[in-house]
Amino acid sequence: MGKIRVLVVDDSAFMRKLITDFLVEHESIEVVGTARNGEDALAKIEEINPDVITLDVEMPVLNGLEALKVIMNKYPRPVIMLSSTTKEGAENTILSLQYGAFDFITKPSGAISLDLHKVKEELKEKVILANSSRRNKTISRFTEKKTPLTVNEYSKIDSIDYKSPTSFDKNHLKSSIVCIGTSTGGPRALQHVLTKIPANIDAPIFIVQHMPPGFTHSLASRLNSISSIEVKEAVNGELVKKGTAYIAPGGSHLKIVKTGTSLTIKIDQSAIRNGHRPSVDVMFDSISELKDYCKVAVIMTGMGSDGSEGLKKLKSTGVVKAISESEQTSVVYGMPKAAVATNLVDKVENVENIAAAIMNFLTNQR
């Protein structure tokens, strides 16, 4: 099998060389060209037809976002964005993921990152992952209309039978919780799901999206602007409201605790779990301690197995329905595959049907 052919796009000659040097350290990666801006990149794509592109967000002539739109339209292939952690950089990064970028790498210290070596291994890993992902199954383009789904739009897919090891009395369960875990490809998947949730949903939604600090606020703001429900970055100590989706802040765990008759958000910097903070397992574990709720757990696209152990705990301690994203629509079929392997998943759904499945479970669970 041939090497992964990469095009490196950055307006800084120093950064182009640095990124190239890092990538070619890996025996499976070959840098076949470089470009100094988006316009130059489009010409190089026509000429050399790379497998994967690394694309700087902030460039003159034609910036990364505008170039990405053309690439996804004319030359669709995996693109990894390189972004700064500024407010504008974070907002543009979230937009790039929704325009079709595979993933992003954060430059540690601005446009010219002399310390880029800190993310060298992450960069190589994501190039390899991007190349191996099933990009021919990219999910359909998003619309930005608010289109809540009603329950009767639910399309059934055969479920995996699951017999709970413990018997639970459903009659005393008067409230519900939705919890969602995702990673690579998650921002676009979340847009597909959250924009189809009706404003009057009778449950709060808790979300862990694997992201570093500085990006989840922009993600929440973007999703809030196009959804009927409220979407926000979770804040430590706030009381939970129905009809609101709470996204774990990048770099912090999200936990939910009972305070009297209410639920309260807890954000902390406790130990990294399975390489992640925020961790889906940590969130699921905390929700498993809430005994008076029906729960719907969703695991969507992402690498690894985060969420599977937490799903086992959820299923063994309460009334839980679990939904996994299908291989067909997952950008990376890692986390959903691990969830299905537990034999605890009740529905496997294409991403465009997950919102309807959630609403169906909430309606019929109690």
Rank of each mutant, 00 (worst) to 15 (best):
E122A: 11
Q209H: 04
I48K: 06
G251S: 11
E30C: 03
K321G: 03
L254T: 02
S175E: 15
Y75D: 10
H172A: 13
N224P: 04
S140Y: 10
Q191L: 10
K74R: 14
Y246G: 01
E233K: 06
A189R: 02
I128M: 12
L7F: 03
T182D: 09
F142G: 00
I45D: 01
Y99W: 12
H253I: 08
K146F: 06
D56Y: 14
I358V: 11
A356W: 02
N49K: 15
S262E: 12
D281I: 09
I19D: 02
E122Y: 06
V24N: 07
G186I: 08
V151F: 01
I48E: 07
V298D: 02
A220G: 11
L239F: 15
E88G: 14
K196P: 05
S288Y: 00
V31Q: 00
D115P: 09
K295E: 05
E27M: 08
A13N: 14
T20V: 03
L311Q: 00
R141K: 15
S167L: 14
F361I: 08
Y162G: 03
E30Y: 02
G275F: 00
S175N: 15
A101C: 06
T93Q: 06
R277Y: 08
G310T: 01
G307K: 04
I105Y: 00
S225R: 09
Y162D: 01
I48N: 09
K241Y: 04
T195G: 05
P165F: 02
E349V: 08
A338D: 09
K170G: 07
L23C: 08
D51H: 08
T106G: 08
A90N: 04
P212K: 06
N274K: 14
K321M: 03
A35K: 02
G307S: 05
K255T: 00
